[in-house]
Design a protein around this nucleic acid. Sequence first.
DNA 1: GCGGTAATACTACCACGGTAGTTCCGATCG
DNA 2: CGATCGGAACTACCGTGGTAGTATTACCGC
Lengths: 127, 127
Amino acid sequence: MARQATYRLGDLQLRIMRVLWDSAPASVADVQRQLGGDKLAYTTVATMLRKMEDRGLLRHCEQGRRFLYEPAVSAEDVTRSMADDLVDRLFEGSLSATVTHLLENREVSCQELARLERLIQQRKQGP
Amino acid sequence: MARQATYRLGDLQLRIMRVLWDSAPASVADVQRQLGGDKLAYTTVATMLRKMEDRGLLRHCEQGRRFLYEPAVSAEDVTRSMADDLVDRLFEGSLSATVTHLLENREVSCQELARLERLIQQRKQGP
DNA sequence: GCGGTAATACTACCACGGTAGTTCCGATCG
DNA sequence: CGATCGGAACTACCGTGGTAGTATTACCGC
């Protein structure tokens, strides 16, 4: 697997990706509606979609004169990329340092602890 | 403990904070040197320091006509803030989702797994 | 064909991270 | 005293995320 781009998305961009990941293809109006109606101008959303397509995050195809947008990168790619970026920037790539920090600084329920435990056991079996 | 600011630092800003965290107080020249010498212009570093002071990340005091800078926020605050930000943005605040993702997408050595296991055991005892 | 409407396209604006040039001040040295 | 030098200050510039207004185009109903 070759090297891949590192995505650093702003808040709005991430929200837009989320909309598209779970209901692509979507028109500008669709996206705007799902972004919370009239909080953002229609043209704002349209502009953002265009810019994001320029960056390769999205694709569009035309249906009549409507543009239908869909993601060009997967949620996994973006999530991994952003998470990796943080782990590298903040913890010099050390996963255990990251998790240590999270455990020490956040409220963790017993349920979550148990889930984590199971996760690690599982990870110890499988390669 | 009252609420606290959420810091979102760029790369250079983070590198500067790191320099100051482990060798404050430092002059502009000191910071520039530790940032790798001539990769960044002296004035660039100075500008960045000034902007960061405006944002409350740093403080300075004058020694003769030299400015000596020091952090105004702790490494812990910044790290926690940035980590929380990511967990919230990417995983809706779910710690286990975050860790799950990290485990699934990164190489993890046996050592690291063992360390994580110990960490969780430990966390299960203490409150 | 004509006017209205719904869609995109274009353009502009602000804030901010990052980069750097130019200026200005004070001290020191010949 | 006057030139030079080190340091900070000021200003400008570029890229990009985010916001939105205006222009243009293409269809639709009459």
